[in-house]
């Protein structure tokens, strides 16, 4: 068993990629968007660790805007995913409208807190 770990990992990756290729492109776009937000948040945390936490409100609003965006995008992805049976009664248009409204509120708050 211990001998074949790298092979197993490769097999795991292969199956993951082949499964992901089957994902609809609209969901892939959402994933990309989430990755972008998380990556920006990580950059800011590293910058804060280097420079110091002085304009702390700015740091918080910068990071929370990224995290909030990512969370809202994940919520949208759950709701528009056709394979997800839980939200099959919810039309994707309604989910998208919710997403836009929440984003507007989020960015309004962020602008006020950015200082």
């Amino acid at each position: 068993m211990a001998r074949s770990t790298s092979k197993d990992a490769q097999a795991l990756f292969q199956s993951l990629r082949s499964a992901y290729v089957a994902t609809p492109s609209s969901l892939k776009i959402i994933d990309l968007y989430v990755c972008f937000a998380v990556f920006t948040a990580i950059i800011q945390v590293v910058y804060m660790a280097v420079v110091g936490s002085f304009p702390f409100n700015s740091f918080l609003s910068g990071v929370l805007s990224c995290v909030g965006t990512a969370v809202l995008a994940v919520c949208l992805r759950i709701q528009v995913n056709k394979e997800n049976k839980e939200f099959k009664d919810l039309p994707p248009e309604r989910a998208f409208a919710d997403f836009v409204l929440c984003n507007l509120v989020l960015h309004l708050v962020i602008m006020n807190f950015l200082g």
Partner: peptide
Amino acid sequence: LPAAYPYYGASFSMMVG
């Protein structure tokens, strides 16, 4: 503050994004 420009940039890039 110059030190806060990355945070401003991140917030606005989120909006543009």
